[in-house]
Each structure stands twice: as structure tokens, then as C-alpha cells.
Design a protein around this nucleic acid. Sequence first.
DNA 1: TTGAAAGCGCTAACAG
DNA 2: CTGTTAGCGCTTTCAA
Lengths: 349, 349
Amino acid sequence: MGVTIKDVAQAANVSVASVSRVLNGHSTVTDDTRARILAVMKALRYVPHVGARSLSTNLTDTVGVLLPDLYGEYFSEMIRGIDGAARRRGLHLLVASLHGGADEAATALRTMRGRVDGLLVMSPHADAAFLADNLPGQLPVVLLNSGAGGGAYASVSIDNFSAAYAMVGHLAASGHRSIGFITGPAGNFEAQERLRGYRAALAAFLPRAREAVYEGDFTEEAGTRVGTALARRKRRPGAVFAANDMMAIGAQLALQAAGVDVPGDIALAGFDDIPVARYVTPALTTVRVPIAEMGALALGRLAAQIAAGAHGGHGAAADTLDAHLVVRASSGQRAPVPSNRIPITGDRQ
Amino acid sequence: MGVTIKDVAQAANVSVASVSRVLNGHSTVTDDTRARILAVMKALRYVPHVGARSLSTNLTDTVGVLLPDLYGEYFSEMIRGIDGAARRRGLHLLVASLHGGADEAATALRTMRGRVDGLLVMSPHADAAFLADNLPGQLPVVLLNSGAGGGAYASVSIDNFSAAYAMVGHLAASGHRSIGFITGPAGNFEAQERLRGYRAALAAFLPRAREAVYEGDFTEEAGTRVGTALARRKRRPGAVFAANDMMAIGAQLALQAAGVDVPGDIALAGFDDIPVARYVTPALTTVRVPIAEMGALALGRLAAQIAAGAHGGHGAAADTLDAHLVVRASSGQRAPVPSNRIPITGDRQ
DNA sequence: TTGAAAGCGCTAACAG
DNA sequence: CTGTTAGCGCTTTCAA
């Protein structure tokens, strides 16, 4: 097929071992022979076969990235962060989406054996038990935004609860007395945390207000649905907080299409601060999640685990990143806000 | 490390050959032994080592995807299209970004040897000569939106020239007498085609008008720069056509921030129809590029090349996909337009 | 139907 | 400093 290390050795009149040595920078080679080998490699346009190499070394220099989906700005940002960190370390990325159910996730997981040195996993199905059952050997793993690590696996996430809590606080402080919430997909850990934050904050800041929870699933269509329904109502909450930006935007467009003014008639807030949030009118008040940074950090942790040689047992470090409120026009606050970036959580590492 | 085929063979009291046979569905195995082996595999939680397998078979079931960047909605869409098509065929994706210069692109290209069965390449540097020089062996390759295949490689792209031409036609038909253009990066093939379309259309529809070409590079900042500069001018074109959406949006925001009305004072149009284009106010008139479909088609072509066994020589098929004008509010047309999706090119395949 | 054995391309002792 | 050689985990003739 291609030119192999043997061809090079032969052409350079040396053994494959010597070629291998210059390939790997083992200094124990005469400058003379090294030069000769290098010349031959160039002449033959030799490219080492990494697959073969990794069979020997048990190292692939690639990490697997398992995401629930490859679509949308959230994942785009995530991959960007991961890719930057990976290339900085000379690592390659094997990405796969997980949109099937648990079976498919299991398959994806197992098929990574021998292809990667470690895994970055973001999946609703990826709880500790599931991973333990399907992970080939004890591959280093870092979980992304999945509360299910259970301490068994390292994880990187943000404090969804506190951020949601703070957002409701902001809405209440802005004078809204009834605040609704659009949920994420039922099984989603992050969505649950955000809902929990909403409930806690409501109880704390507006103890006499009633909860108004609308079902959603993180898609724009869900937001549209809620927005349309809300537009038809006579009585609606003064503000609606969506568990993510896409739903908030869907609701906003639906409301506006129905002639309801945002934020005049109803204030809106989202979560994630995806790039579009700045471009809609009015611009969306939201929680800035440092998506790319999360990805980068997760890859860093994974690289460290890999370097540590997979021993060190399960590095169960759980990183939590700061999130910030980003107040824009859609939340219609009455009182001016000192800064548009209010730190929510103080914890780090 | 993990449990190997040997372990399974031993535990099942058979040879590795038999295990391999059931692994690959070679029917020449007794139902009895097959069952026994299957049971042992399950019990031992055996997962075949694909790396080792591909060393034997010279097949990886993986395709490499080389993109100039992993950031933004354009690439997100592209990856989505590719991923969908890949998973449908049981193929995995090894993605890498190329943001460095030619050297880095070369490295990325060579490092794919032994990892992938074929390559999807979208890169400014990837002209035919460059590929020929850096491709390990004669790997199947499909070029994305790079005019540089030169017939030597299969390619998938859209007709940028015609689409740009049609957009300028639309702007002229809408009553705009002077039309400016914001260019993409200097070396970019697609950007050049769009500029060429602009020029040709200008000559055809507004022969007495002067060209007004502003330099850009596909980033929002470039658009901002142009928009800001334009806002300061006393005389400005009645319409500006940006070589992509992000620049159009940057210009729009800058103009609006400076108090210039869009489309009242100046009309705007973009190219790509990235998701955000619908969300800005006024919504952006643009050219819909079926990004995900392009990715899917490209992967399909690649899979076909791979299946054809890399012989069949260079499948130099050049696919061109249809693009459509999407007329929204930003272009300020005076006359109503029959449909908001006007086919531009009729060619296919 | 099954097993033994020769690789796939490369690395890493172990001897010289 | 350099060459020999035994694997890495799996597939695949070739015999039995």
C-alpha cells in the first residue's frame, strides 16, 4: 500500500530499528546515519503508519469526543474549545454523536477501544453505572455537564442551580411578580438543575407567587409552542425564564409574531448565551456559560489523566466553572444594573 | 490492558481463528462453538481492538474531515451533514482543523495515514498539487468547496458565481442603482467566485454603475469595520452585498448603531443563510447554501470511492448543488417577490 | 469445521 | 551506535 519503515531501512542501508529511532527522536544515532535516513524518508515520501505504531505503544494520540448531537451553536462552541486544547497538545479528535438511545451510546463507547487514549463524554445516558458497564478497560474519562459522575469519574460542569437561582433573582429584582419557567428535556441533568434553581429562587424571592412551569425540550420549536400558547392567554406571567436560549428565542419570535411586546408585555430570559442571543431584538438576557472554556478545561483534565498513566485510579476531580448573568434588553429591568456581568458563583476548581 | 481475542479463545477452548470467524460472521463455524464463543465474549466483556484489526485489513471504517476551522454555524452545519451521512454508513469521523498555514495543513494530511479510509477536505491550501504532494498513498479524497480540484479529485460545491450574480440582479431589480460588495479572504476560492459574480452582474445589470469593493475576510469584525466606515460617509451605495452572512450582520449592527436605517438608508444582503440570518432585525436577505446537504453528499461520494476500492482511479466527479435566493427584509425590495425562494441554478449532479 | 502460523507496520528490549 | 527479534491484537491463508 504505502511505503513502510522497511522500505526506508532498506534504501538507507540500515535496520528498521534505526529508522524507528530517528522517527522517535532517540538521540542514540549518528548524525551521519540520521541524515541519511532523513534524506531517504523525504525522497520516498515516507509517512509513518500511526495505526501500527499505536498497536505497539498502546498510545493513539487521539481522544474520543461523544456528544449528544453535533448540531447547533452549543456543540459548535464545545468542539471549538476542545479542539483548541487538543491541538495545543498534539492530540487528535475522534468525534461521534450519540443521538440514539442507550444502545447506540453503548456501541459508540465500545467502538472507541483501541482508537483513543481517553474519552470526553457528554450524554444523558452516561451515568456512572452505564459507563462502568460499557467502558472498554479502564479508559480515562471526563464527563461534561453530566451530574451523574457520582464521584467515580472526573467531570467538568457549571453550577446550573446557582445560575438559574440568580436569574430568577434578577427577574424578581426587576419588578416581575410572576415568573414562568420553560423546562428542558425530562431526563437532562442540567435542565433539572436549572428547574431546581428556579423553584428555590421563587420560594425565596416571591414566596407568594405560584410556579408556572411549561414543558420544553431545548428546541426552538418548544419555545415557539409555549410562546404561541402564552400569546393566546389573557393572563400571563410577567416574565418567562427558559432553560436554554433556543427556547427563549423561539418564544420571543412567537410572541412578537402574535403582537405581544417583549419585554413590555412579557419579559424573557434564557440560558447558555449562545452567539445568536446577542443578535435577536431585543437582545436576550441570559446566563453566560463558558462553553468553549469548559471543553478546553475538560480536555486538559483528560490529558492530565492520560499522562498520569491511567493509574492514579479514577481522578474524580469535579470542576465547576463560573457562570455569569448577562443582562440585556429582553428582561426589561426597570432599575439600571451596575454591570452586565454579575458573577454568580465564587467557587472554582 | 484489555481482554484480547486470545483470552476469549482460551476461555472458550478454541483457537483465535475461530473467535475471529464468529467476530466477522464467517458462517463456517458450528452453531455450538459459535454459541460458546459468544457466551465467553459476553462474560469477559470482550471488545475487539479495532486498531489491530485495521492493521490487518487495511480498513479503518473512519473518514478524516479536514476543515479550516471548527468554529461557527457554517462548520457546525457542515459537520452535522457529514456526521448524519457517516453514521448511516457505520463510519466514524476523525475531524481536525487546519487553521495554521500550509505546513500545518500538510502535517494534518499526513497524520491521517493509517487512521482513515478516506478524506474530506475543505481548505484554501488544498489545491491539486498540494494534495498530490502531501497525500499518503492514493487515499480517496473529496474536496469541499474548493475550486482547486482541477479535475484530479472529486469535489462537491455550489455555484457561487451564479448565486452572487442572481443576488446582484435581485438588488438591481429592487431599485438599487449603486451596489457595493464586501469581499472574503484574498485566497479563498468561494469568495473569489462570489466577487466575480458581483462584477459580472454589475456589468450586465448596471453597466454605468461603478464598482465599490470593500475588503473583508468573512469575519463579523470585517463587516463591522465596513459598516462603521460607511456610516461616516456622506455618499454611500444604496445596497451592500457581503460575501457571507457574518460580514453582512456585522455591517448591519454597525450601521444601526450609528443611526443608519437598514434597509431604508442602505440595503444589505449576505451569503450562506446561516441560522442567525433569520434572527436579526431586519432579517437578512441572503443565498441559501445547503451546507449540511453538501456535507452529506460529499461523504456519500467518498464512501462510494472507498467502496469502489480506491481503484477506479481518481473519481473526478464534480457535484454542484443548487443555491437559492432567500429574500427577507434587509434588501428592502420595493416590488413584492413571488416566492422567497427563487432557484438560481438548474444544473445538478 | 477447526487450528497453526504468517504477517499488517511499528516499537523496544536485548545483544553486539 | 546499530542490528535482531519478539511482540502489539487481529485476520487470513493453508493444512488437517
